[in-house]
Amino acid sequence: MKNVLIGFVVAVVLTAAAHAAEPTGQEIIASVDAGRNPGQSFRVVDNLTEYVGGQPRNSMQLVIFATQNKATHQYNNLIRYVLPSRDAGKMVLFNGSNMWFYDPSSKASVRISPQQRLLGQASNGDVATVNLAKDYTAKLLGEEKLLDADKQTRDCWHLELKAATDEAVYSRVEYWVEKGTYHQIKGKFFSDSGRLLKIAYYHKFMPMLGRQVPAETIVIDSVNQNLVTTMAVSDMRAQDVPESWFQRDFLPRLKID
């Protein structure tokens, strides 16, 4: 009995010590940003495949240009649609709350609202690079063991993120971040009304531009659970992306070759 009591006390002390050294939610999310967002402007290819009823049905290829705004530390993004042919040449610009959609068929630039970032199963807001620590206030809910997309057990911090700015894509997000590596393992995304919109699993972490980036994200639609979309990033490379690109009038000028 005495030994058990000693063991109990030791365990409590160790747990308390571990909790004392625990980073805050905000620190964890800042480390996630630091671990995955390249510290320079870049371009990346994103291939999206949509599975309906377990079978691939539609695909999409995007080229994304991103750079961190020196003043706000938020990321500005330009998204260019390459495939399918129906959408080829369409573009989306995210520059804070200055967001535009450009269609080469009509030569029209249409201003879009933050809400419209959520259009699409894997939405424009999902493929854009964001600074989570700037957009959200994070709270550490606890620690959990979680299976990742490859069914490997991960020791995770469970975080709740609430939108801190109008530029946050979702009003509330839950993240599971692997302890030690600061890899995002899973995310749950909620609408303004609190409805669960989608669940994302991040895996295949690979070095890209000196960071560990999830090469594939699997997005499960929480409303239509028959629908799963994969987002695979590749060919991430450093590229000078001037500030002057992030405005309406530059959209027709963006080249991908």
């Binding site: 599975y51 377990g54 390459v82 080829a88 997309a149 669940i199 799963v228 590749s234």
Partner: peptide, 26 residues
């Protein structure tokens, strides 16, 4: 929710990394 991820996702071939501005025809 892991059970909702289809097996085809795990066996899918890596997507093309190259991009080409091919235009739009219909």
């Amino acid at each position: 929710d892991l059970g909702l991820i289809p097996g085809a996702v795990q066996t899918a071939a890596p997507p093309a990394a190259t991009v080409q501005d091919r235009g739009k025809y219909a």
